[in-house]
Design a binder for these strands. Sequence first.
DNA 1: TGTCCACTGGAAGGGAGGGCTT
DNA 2: AAGCCCTCCCTTCCAGTGGACA
Length: 413
Amino acid sequence: MEDNIFDKFISQKTLFKNKENLRHNFRPNQLPHRNEEIDTISYNLWEALKGHIPSNMTLYGVTGAGKTAVTAYVCHHLKAKGESMGSQVESIMVNCRQIDTQYRVLSHIGNSLLESYEQDEIPFTGWPTDRVFNELIRRMDQRGGVFVIVLDEIDHLVRKVGDDLLYNLTSLNSSLKKARACVIGISNDLKFTDFLDPRVRSRLGQLDVLFKPYDAEQLQDILRQRAVQGLNEGVIGPGVIELCAALAAQEHGDARCALDLLRISAEKAEKEGENTVNQNHVRVAQSQIEADQMTPVISSLPSQQKLVLAAVLLNEQNGLRNVQTGQVYDIYRQACKHIRQNPLTQRRISGLISNLDMLGLVTARTVSKGRYGRSKEINSCIPANINAPEIMKAAEEEMALVFKAAYHHQTSL
DNA sequence: TGTCCACTGGAAGGGAGGGCTT
DNA sequence: AAGCCCTCCCTTCCAGTGGACA
C-alpha cells in the first residue's frame, strides 16, 4: 500500500492533552484574578434576568487584560441562567475592528436575530441605515426579552465613524415596545469617550469597569491553569511558565500573548520530538510570533500602502533613520515611476503613513524642527530578524519590483 | 517677538463599485 | 432603467502648528 504523508504524524507522540485549551479565545471554566470584575458585571446584568434594563457599561483595559474573556464568560452564564429561569436574555457580541461601520454593526446585530424560518437577511449594502435600524427594532420586539449588546473594540469604531451608532444604540429602549436592551462597550483606550457627544458619554458610561493588566504572578496562575487542561503532565520544563509570564508581563500584562507563547513553545518542542518544553523553545516561539504577526499584515496591505512601506524601508536600507514625510514621498514617487504607477498626492501618503503607524509597522511621531518645519519622523518597526527578502516575499510583486529597481539603481552608481 | 518652514489633519466632495427599490 | 443608498479611495483646499532662527 502507498505510504500516506500523514502517517508519520499519527504515530508521533504528542505533548498536548487538548490544544484548544491553550488558545486565547478558548473560554475556560474559571478566570483567575478576575473575580471582582466578574462580580461587578454580573451584578449589573442580574437585572436582565429579572426583566429589567441593566445599566450600560464600559469596560476599559489594555489588550489581553481579560475584558473580552470576562464578558463572554458572564454572558454565557447569563444565557444559561436565563434559560433555566425562563426569562429571555440574549447577548450579541460584535467585534468593531472587523465590523466597523454603523451600517455593518446594525445589520450584523439584525442578522444574528434571524429566526430560522425567516429567510430575508439584511443585505450587506443597499438599504438606508435608518431602515436597517427599524428592522433591527422590529426583530428585537418580535423576540422580546432583554438584549445585551457587546461592542468589542468600541474605541476603534468611534475613532473611525464617530458616535452616531452609539447614540442610536443607547437610545434603543425608547424605540422598543416589548424588548429591552443594554450596551456594553469594551475599549483599550481610557480616553475614547473624549470623542463622544456628552449625552452619549453619560448614557454609555453609567457603569465603568477598569481591568488592570495582569502582573507576572497572575499570568503564571493563568498559564498553570490552562497548562493543566491543555498539556500532558510533566511536559513543562523548569522556568518555562515563569519565562512566558515574564515576557508577556513586559508586553503590558497581555494574557493573550502569554498563552500564545506557551502554546507555540510546546508546538516547537513537539515538532522537535522532545518530551519536555524548555526555555529555549520559548525564545524561539517569541521570535516566531513577532514574525508571524507582521508578515500577513504586510501581505494583506493594499498595493499603495506597500509602496509607502517599501519607501520607508528603502530609506532605512540606505542608513537613514527618522525620515520625514517629504523624504518618504520622494522615494515613493521614484518607486512609482519605476513600476509605472501614478503616484498619489502627498496628503494621501501622509494619511497612509499614519495608517502604517496604527498597524504597528512603522512609528510616525510628529515633531517640529523649528523653522525647518513640522513633519513626522518615521521609522520602520520591522524587527531585524525579519529581513528584507522575507518582507519582499510577503509583500509580493509591488515591493519586490521596487526593491529590485532600487538595487539596480544602487549597483549602477 | 515675529517670521516662516514643512508639513498636519480636518472638511468637503468626486467618482467608482456594490446593492436595493420602484 | 432610473433613482437611491452606502462604502471606499482619493483629491483639493486650507487653517493651524511647534519651535528654530533672525
